[in-house]
Design a protein around this nucleic acid. Structure first.
Length: 234
DNA sequence: ACCCAGGGTCATA
DNA sequence: TATGACCATGGG
């Protein structure tokens, strides 16, 4: 089996399917994607709970929200002034563009372009939304992905976001095409694997890197000097 | 007390 | 194109 699928299988065997993204609706996924920027997910959960309790977890409500009050609900995620503005401008765009059903009619390239035009939505947030809210075949690149595959020696890690995304997408799709055990069409298969793959990378980071004492095989934490180059043996 | 967290924008060279 | 400053709370 090829390198990227071997890593995928190893993580899947260890942790099982993650069923991402955590969130009950596509809109909640979008909100979480904005709020989790450089922030621990446990803090995001508190803010989602705040918004739900206030009945503010709706596009119309957030699009017209007074920034000071919205920022107060968002306090636990940090950067709350910045994120209040980002979340509100995202919802304004979301409503202007016709909401989910209208956006879902766009092809993936057009939808990404629209997302990137929203202030506060960068490459990773856009891809989180494309993959986990719209079900598009996009491989999300984050700091964990760079660290893990960099330390595995499969990439350098300092490539541009788009370079890495194209690399992972083509590599995984190519490796999947050699598998004969799948019946679905290639795009459905890619979405399912990209979805699980990113989730497993993040779960692996939370599992390994946060333990104390730190796991000596850790390849994800920035503060862990250990190098693990053969984690994919089965 | 220090480091890190499922980034992004803006100013500068 | 590529760094660096900045945003800011919460848990280890």
């Amino acid at each position: 089996m090829s390198a990227y699928l071997r890593v995928f299988r190893t993580l899947l065997d260890r942790y099982g399917p993650q069923r991402w993204w955590p969130g009950e609706t596509p809109f909640e996924v979008m909100v979480g994607a904005v709020l989790t920027q450089n922030t621990a997910w446990t803090n995001v959960e508190k803010c989602i709970a705040n918004l739900k309790a206030a009945h503010w977890l709706e596009p119309d409500r957030l699009a017209t929200a007074p920034l000071p009050r919205l920022a107060a609900y968002l306090r636990p995620v940090g950067y709350f002034n910045v994120k209040a503005e980002r979340l509100r401008s995202y919802c304004q765009w979301y409503i202007e563009r016709g909401g989910y059903s209208a956006l879902a009619r766009l092809d993936t390239a057009a939808l990404r372009s629209e997302l990137l035009d929203v202030k506060g939505v960068g490459a990773e947030t856009a891809d989180d939304i494309l993959l986990y809210a719209f079900g598009r075949p996009v491989f999300v690149i984050d700091a964990y992905t760079r660290r893990l595959f960099g330390r595995l020696g499969l990439v350098r890690g300092d490539e541009s976001y788009e370079t890495l995304r194209a690399h992972f997408e083509t590599s995984v799709v190519r490796e999947l095409a050699r598998e004969s055990a799948f019946a679905e069409d290639p795009e459905t298969r890619a979405v399912a694997v990209f979805n699980e793959y990113h989730a497993l990378v993040v779960i692996h980071a939370k599992d390994i890197c946060r333990k104390k004492p730190r796991c000596p095989q850790c390849v994800l934490s920035a503060s862990c000097p250990a190098q693990l180059r053969t984690p994919t043996r089965t």
